[in-house]
Design a protein around this nucleic acid. Structure first.
Length: 801
RNA sequence: GCGGGUGUGGCGGAAUUGGCAGACGCGCUAGCCUUAGGAGCUAGUGUCACCGAUGUGCAGGUUCAAGUCCUGUCACCCGCACCA
């Protein structure tokens, strides 16, 4: 019989749909497994072949877990707010909601055609008012706890999206999404105080099973550093604080630097003799975009303040004060002490401006370059610190500073607060009202959801206002607090809002009274396994951990951390090894692959393509290998014979394969699991037949990878019920062992022969058996044996002289 | 510059964590089958002067034994980027 994948796949997809085969059960007494993949943004281009890599992997895990008796939740939904939809809507004069609806329909059709075992009854959509009601609700809780605030600040402004961006969305000085230039703009923005959670976000990483690169990337992004705030004096009496992690090098501080935006500059305006020059520098710096600042990073610039000097608190030395844009106002105190001998940036600056370089840790050549790698050095030129190790000096100087009231410990983070407003239409309205008298007032919770009004034009504006601002009917309202006329906030939330908690909604997707019931959250939480892209590590993944930690603090969720385990898949590249993109013309359309090879082949191929964590190029010819494999599997029905136990000659290999596939799925090594199944198939094919016991095991093992063909074969073979309701095969460690094994015999580490020995042979017997071999005997003839050893089931090595 | 990672056939990639390098698949070669085939079957396929030698980016080292451990070095990829 010919393998008609199209017919088979359609048939089973329909049966699964009609029977709600993969719906998670509400029986909270069963052992549960919650598998999650990042829900897609339903773009107009449809599914990318990269999406199924992640979805198939966790689908395999989910299907295996079901066969192992777990109550599995494997849901899917739509992260549907966002700019591309809005832009498409503007261009084609269709409402974004309509665009979204169409895109979702297409995505859903594509996902269904791949046979994923999603529980479609739990589908969520971030643009559904019943959903974003709770996104807004969470915002209000954040507001109530003081974690949402409005602040006028310099923000990243994308010149093309006409919208502000979070720091995480600015990549190399350009917009992460569209690649356009990002400039600074002074704007009043809603902010979320994620910095309050920096410590918790770091601590939580110790409790979860995330792959290391995700943990390190988040740690680096949060960027904790322990240091000291040191109080410097000045010749005009004022003091100012600098932040340093190297207080031990204080005696080497030969100047200080203020960031151009530092408030002291204005305060000292009448005391700075060259104020014009300073102001000019400050204005020049303000004009630079982040991109320019990075470009010019190597070349240090700055201006010395004339008429004022700083006073180093450890030795009362007067040292110059500079302003320079290499010091950032946004980190620490916006002021530093410069130790050119032991900091590369300070060294560069000192050389350029001819400033003294004082070595305080011996061991380098500070005239040549900054000696920064000096943690093992000994202190010099440092008065009471002389002779101490760096480690001891750190302790001692801290004590001294504390005693003299000149310095206190301080922990700093690179993490910034999250800019939460977007001047766009297609997002969740921020449920806040501005009243002249009361200021910003939160909308009462019973008025949620605050729905998006229909507008005629979604065009973004250059003046930095949301398109909603033109909807005066909607904007003008009354103050929930005093009843006076008031206006609504017209900015909307960023796309990251809806995705920060969607996994909670899946637990109880239709609950009208809460984001999800306590019972559902207690049972399903935390997500047992979450797979997603590395590009979300410092965005979605961090944001959602923040929201979840917050929801835990206010008693809404029962666990601190939302995800117990996080893995990440590599990208699928174009055939030429480059990233798939329309402009490169190397995009593969999943619909065509399914049409030409079938969904099962596509699934097997994407899992077989290589190391799951690494990027892999698509190969149109390799996919045929997966198809051939399934063709052969389908043909097994022609050689199916009776038999209710494995034949002895292949029993060990079957047990080994069950073990390998079981373990490999857990370890996300789908490529080697498939290789093992291919090997087993080759072995079986060589025997000319397969019995029913073997067949049952084989197709069950293959089922998570290729669910349609295996389900069909199950039915053809006449086994009871449906394959997806059967049990995962068990293996017996004792039966994984072959009775006889081939081992290598080496003489002086070089292979001279291969012999067959019983698996349980003892050392002595193995070695003497090896020596009986002709080739080996010839090699050791007349030589002295120095050493002989047997590595069980591997080899014998005889060392001779 | 800092952080993370990777270097194995013509290609994608395996290798029980120190034990027969190249599993599995693609491609390729030869033969069979076919009116035909971007179909199927069988056999072969790291390299070299075909006994044999040699081989996991490069150079050393440890070991009976190294892709795996140690030292040095080169190349590439990803992330962050003046964070004091």
């Amino acid at each position: 019989m010919k393998y008609n994948y199209t017919e088979i796949e359609k048939k089973w997809q329909q049966i699964w749909d009609e029977n709600k085969t993969f719906a998670a059960k509400d029986d909270y007494t069963l052992p549960k497994f919650y598998g999650l993949v990042e829900f897609p943004y339903p773009s107009g281009q449809g599914l990318h072949v990269g999406h199924p890599r992640s979805y198939t992997a966790i689908d395999i895990v989910a299907r295996k877990k079901r066969l192992q008796g777990y109550n599995v939740l494997y849901p899917m939904g739509w992260d549907a707010f966002g700019l591309p939809t809005e832009n498409f809507a503007i261009k084609n004069h269709i409402h974004p909601a309509e665009v979204t609806k169409n895109n979702i329909a297409n995505f859903k059709r594509q996902l269904k055609s791949l046979g994923f075992s999603f529980d479609w009854d739990r589908e969520v959509n971030t643009t559904d008012p019943e959903y974003y009601k709770w996104t807004q609700w969470i915002f209000l809780q954040l507001y109530k706890k003081g974690l949402a605030y409005k602040s006028k600040m310099s923000v990243n402004w994308c010149t093309s999206c006409k919208c502000v961006l979070a720091n995480e969305e600015v990549v190399n000085g350009v917009c992460e999404r569209c690649g356009s230039e990002v400039v600074h703009r002074e704007k009043s923005q809603w902010m979320l105080k994620i910095t309050d959670y920096a410590e918790k976000l770091l601590d939580g990483l110790d409790e979860v099973d995330f792959i290391d690169r995700v943990k390190t990337q988040q740690r680096n992004w949060i960027g904790r550093s322990y240091g000291t705030l040191v109080s410097f004096g000045s010749t005009i009496g004022d003091t100012f604080e600098v932040f340093t992690t190297r207080a031990d090098t204080l005696f080497g501080a030969t100047y200080t630097v203020l960031s151009p935006e530092h408030p002291l500059i204005e305060k000292w305006a009448d005391k700075i003799e060259n104020y014009d020059e300073v102001l000019a520098y400050k204005q020049e710096a303000a004009k630079k975009s982040d991109f320019e600042r990075t470009e010019l990073a190597k070349d240090k610039t700055g201006v010395m303040l004339k008429g004022i000097k700083a006073v180093n608190p450890v030795n009362n030395t007067e040292i110059p004060i500079f302003i320079s844009d290499y010091v950032l106002i946004s980190y620490g105190t916006g002021a530093i002490m410069a130790v050119p001998a032991h900091d590369t940036r300070d060294w560069d600056f000192a050389k350029k401006f001819g400033l003294p370089i004082i070595e305080v840790v011996a061991g380098g050549n500070v005239e040549q370059e900054a000696f920064t790698d000096c943690n093992t050095g000994v202190m010099v030129n440092s008065d009471f610190l002389n002779g101490l190790s760096v480690e001891d000096a750190k302790v001692k100087i801290q004590e001294w500073l504390t005693e003299n009231g000149l310095g206190k410990r301080k922990t700093n983070y690179k993490l910034r607060d999250w800019v939460f407003s977007r001047q766009r239409y297609w997002g969740e309205p921020i449920p806040m009202v501005y009243c002249e008298k009361c200021g910003y007032v939160p909308l009462p919770e019973n008025e949620l959801p605050l729905t998006l009004p229909n507008v005629d034009s979604y065009e973004p504006t250059d003046n930095g206002e949301s398109p909603l601002a033109k909807m005066t009917d909607w904007v003008n309202t009354t103050c929930p607090c005093c009843g006076a006329p008031a206006t609504r906030e017209t900015d909307t939330m960023p796309q990251w809002a809806g995705s920060s908690w969607y996994f909670l909604r899946y637990c109880d997707p239709n609950n009208p009274d809460a984001l999800a019931s306590k019972e559902a959250l207690e049972y399903w939480g935390p997500v047992d396994w979450y797979n997603g892209g590395m590009e979300h590590t410092t965005l979605h993944l961090l944001y959602s951990r923040f929201w979840h930690l917050f929801l835990y603090d206010i008693g809404v969720v029962p666990n601190k951390e939302p995800y117990a385990k996080r893995t990440s898949h590599g990208m699928i590249l174009g055939e030429n090894g480059e990233k798939m993109s329309k402009s490169r013309g190397n995009v593969v359309n999943p619909d065509e692959i399914i049409r030409d090879y079938g969904a099962d082949t596509m699934r097997v191929y994407e899992m077989f393509i290589g190391d799951f964590e690494k990027a892999a190029p698509w190969s149109q010819s390799s996919i045929k290998g997966s198809k051939r494999f399934l063709d052969k599997v389908f043909a097994l029905q022609d050689v199916l014979v009776d038999g209710d136990s494995y034949r002895s000659e292949i029993e060990a290999e079957i047990h080994k394969t069950i073990k390998k596939v079981t373990d490999d799925i857990e370890g996300l090594k789908m490529n080697t699991a498939i290789a093992a199944l291919m090997s087993l198939l080759n072995t079986i094919a060589a025997t000319g037949s397969i019995n029913r016991a073997e067949f049952k095991t084989f197709i069950t093992l293959l089922n998570p990878f290729a669910p349609h063909i295996t389900e069909e074969l199950w039915k053809i073979a006449g086994f009871d019920g449906m394959l997806n309701a059967t049990e995962w095969p068990k293996y017996d460690d004792a039966k994984c062992i072959d009775s006889a094994v081939e081992i290598a015999v080496q003489v002086n580490g070089k292979i001279k022969a291969r012999i067959k020995v019983p698996a349980d042979i003892d050392n002595m017997s193995a070695i003497s058996l090896a020596k009986e071999n002709n080739a080996v005997a010839a090699e050791i003839e007349g030589k002295t044996i120095i050493k002989e050893l047997y590595v069980p089931k591997r080899l014998v090595n005889i060392v001779v002289k």
